[in-house]
């Protein structure tokens, strides 16, 4: 690490920084920081190359694959992973009701992708849902119930919101 600026960011409200050693290297993958250093294993690794979306998190409210984000780029950012999603987020109940989780390994990333969509488009069309989740691969459900869950959560959200970030 050389003349880079001070490195500090939050993950689910907890501060990580180079100064206090909680960020050991700027080149570390955000995924490894979340799973190995923060010990929050809800974010999964399915491919390690940004194809499957199982590691998806929100960086300043925008969806990102944490396997492709070096933590050195996160100074000043707010990172939210599945552990930072409120338990009462409408997506949680909607996914359960619809049967949108089967094996569950893609589900946390899928929920984060859905949250990012609803935060920018609270009442998406089915087509918008299909497109927004296209970076999150699921091999169990065929996506049908996931689409239904997101539309259901959107319908229930009204003006109350439910954002994580």
């Amino acid at each position: 690490m050389s003349e880079g600026p001070v490195l500090s960011f939050t993950l689910n409200g907890r501060v990580f920084s180079a100064a206090d050693g909680t960020v050991p290297s700027p080149a570390m993958r955000l995924l490894d920081l979340i799973r190995l250093h923060a010990g929050q294993t809800g974010t999964k690794e399915g491919c390690g190359e940004g194809e499957c979306g199982a590691c998806a998190v929100l960086v300043d409210g925008e969806l990102a694959n944490s396997c492709l984000v070096p933590v050195g780029q996160l100074h000043g950012c707010t990172v939210t992973s599945i552990e930072g999603l409120p338990r009462n987020d409408p997506l949680v109940a909607a996914f359960a009701r619809a049967g949108a989780a089967q094996c569950g390994i893609c589900t946390p990333g899928m929920v984060m992708a859905a949250r990012a969509l609803l935060d920018r488009d609270p009442h998406p069309t089915l087509e918008a849902v299909r497109e927004a989740l296209a970076g999150n691969l699921c091999r169990c459900t065929g996506y049908v119930r996931i689409h239904a869950a997101v539309l259901d959560a959107a319908a229930g959200e009204g003006t109350a919101g439910g954002g994580a970030s």
């Binding site: 880079g4 290297s25 080149a27 993958r29 490894d32 050195g72």
Partner: peptide
């Protein structure tokens, strides 16, 4: 799974184009 990047080279993150 994948190895965490503990053997990183240097990471420069300049704040201005001139510095970069």
């Amino acid at each position: 799974m994948s190895v965490q990047a503990s053997a990183a080279g240097e990471w420069h993150r300049p704040g201005s184009l001139a510095e970069a």
